[in-house]
Simulated assay, not measured.
Amino acid sequence: MKKILSILLLNFCLFSCYSQKSNSDIIYFLPSSVNEILIKELQKRGPNNETYIVLDKENTDTYTIYLNRLSNSSENFWVKHSNRSVFIQGKLIPLYFYSDEYFSFAEKGETVLKKLGTEEVIKKTINIRENTFFIKFKLDGEIVK
């Protein structure tokens, strides 16, 4: 009887760990005109370049895409914790929204919630993209800039 209880307890522990919710991937497909420009830029940068994309919505039908090299830790946080990616030339390139930088903190949610009632500082980071490759386009694929 003890063996059966032990086996049931072990199975329960294993299955409860396995049944945790996993992130589903959201894959974006850009208009072909935007895709072509991004492919050319990625080819210039070479195969060993770790890049990610930031998507910004300027108005109802105009979007801006920033192509960035993975470098500083706050960007790594959003890239690591995003379940979004863009499909370009058979590869998935990580994607997050520009608004993520404004409306969230580059820390795990539980850490931020613990700091709210204390004197600990919650870091707010905003990335400046002055010399970053970008494409402005309309929803139908027309390149604006």
Results as ranks from 00 to 15, higher is better:
D140C: 07
I143M: 06
P31F: 02
L70I: 11
L67R: 01
L67S: 02
T118A: 05
S73Y: 09
K108T: 10
F134W: 06
I88V: 08
Y52K: 03
G90F: 04
R129G: 02
Y52N: 06
K138W: 00
N11E: 05
S104G: 08
L67G: 01
H81W: 11
H81A: 02
L139P: 00
N83P: 03
E50H: 09
F97D: 03
K21S: 10
F29M: 05
L116A: 09
K115W: 03
R129N: 08
E101W: 04
F105M: 05
N131C: 09
N48Q: 14
K115Y: 04
S16E: 07
E107A: 08
L38T: 01
V86C: 03
K3M: 11
Q20Y: 13
E120W: 05
K40I: 11
S33V: 01
I65H: 02
Q89D: 15
I135H: 04
I7V: 15
N131R: 13
L8F: 11
I4K: 12
I93D: 03
L8P: 01
I143P: 02
N72A: 13
N23V: 08
Y98W: 13
I65M: 04
E58N: 15
V34H: 02
L116E: 06
Q43E: 15
D61I: 10
V86G: 00
F29K: 08
I128N: 14
N48S: 15
L139Q: 11
S99I: 15
D100R: 07
I93A: 02
I65W: 01
I143Q: 06
T111R: 10
Y28S: 00
